[in-house]
């Protein structure tokens, strides 16, 4: 068990060093066999991993990895969770007395903006919101995976969900202004993901060391 864990930790360390430091990753692998024979494989592998992580900001690929994790775990996933939470609270066809905080944290009172004639559109409003939230989960995963064709596909699904939401909201006679902040955030996200893809396409930049 410890042996397998050590190998996983070493593989992670080798991967974290990036393509440009491949010979150093192989050097670690060479010494790992000796450390393993000495019964100190896990300690050696953990040290390599810490060293590799400390070096991440020093090379282009490491900076790219840190940025993509920050974008995925710090922006895309939280926004996906917030969108799902808002959808479950009834955004955008419910008015919360506490505004955005009301939708996110369930504070204050809620009043439906749909009348008896448009009540049947509620599921059609919730579905695109949930689809948009799900798109964020996929987007976060595929950004980390650097799978840009799938990132484009998830972005298109997100755009389709927003378009569907706008159409159904218009049919329900709801104010489209409530969607403006969400659209701005999504546009900023799109710009960030595009910049990340362009960064990788340019070859991840020069070394700092």
């Amino acid at each position: 068990m410890t042996g397998r864990l050590s190998r996983v930790v070493l593989a992670l360390a080798m991967h974290s060093l990036g393509a440009q430091n491949r010979p150093w990753a192989q050097a670690m692998q060479g010494e790992f066999a000796v450390a393993e024979a000495d019964g100190r494989a896990l300690r050696f592998a953990c040290g390599c991993l810490l060293g590799a992580w400390r070096m991440l900001p020093r090379h282009g690929e490491g900076r790219f990895t840190l940025t993509s994790y920050a974008l995925s775990l710090g922006v895309l996933l939280p926004i996906g969770v917030l969108l799902a939470k808002a959808a479950m609270s009834g955004f955008p066809f419910v008015m919360a007395s506490a505004g955005t905080a009301g939708f996110l944290w369930g504070q204050g009172t809620f009043r439906s903006l749909l009348d008896p004639g448009t009540q049947c559109l509620a599921p059609a409003l919730i579905a695109p919101m949930l689809a948009l939230a799900a798109c964020h989960g996929l987007l976060a995963w595929w950004v980390l995976d650097r799978d840009w064709p799938r990132v484009v596909m998830a972005s298109r699904l997100g755009a389709a969900a927003i378009t569907a939401l706008v159409i159904v909201m218009a049919c329900a006679g709801l104010s489209l202004a409530t969607l403006a902040p969400a659209c701005l955030i999504l546009a900023a996200e799109c710009a960030a993901v595009t910049a990340l893809a362009a960064w990788q396409a340019k070859g991840l930049g020069e070394e700092l060391i």
């Binding site: 000796v34 592998a45 040290g47 060293g51 060391i209």
Partner: peptide, 26 residues
């Protein structure tokens, strides 16, 4: 010297030795 020998000789951990060796090589 091999990396593991250097670790034993200096008492430094692998996470310290390798970044140092990389920097000194450069």
């Amino acid at each position: 010297w091999h990396g593991y020998e250097l670790m034993k000789e200096t008492g430094l951990a692998s996470g310290t030795i390798y970044p140092l060796l990389m920097r000194m090589t450069e």
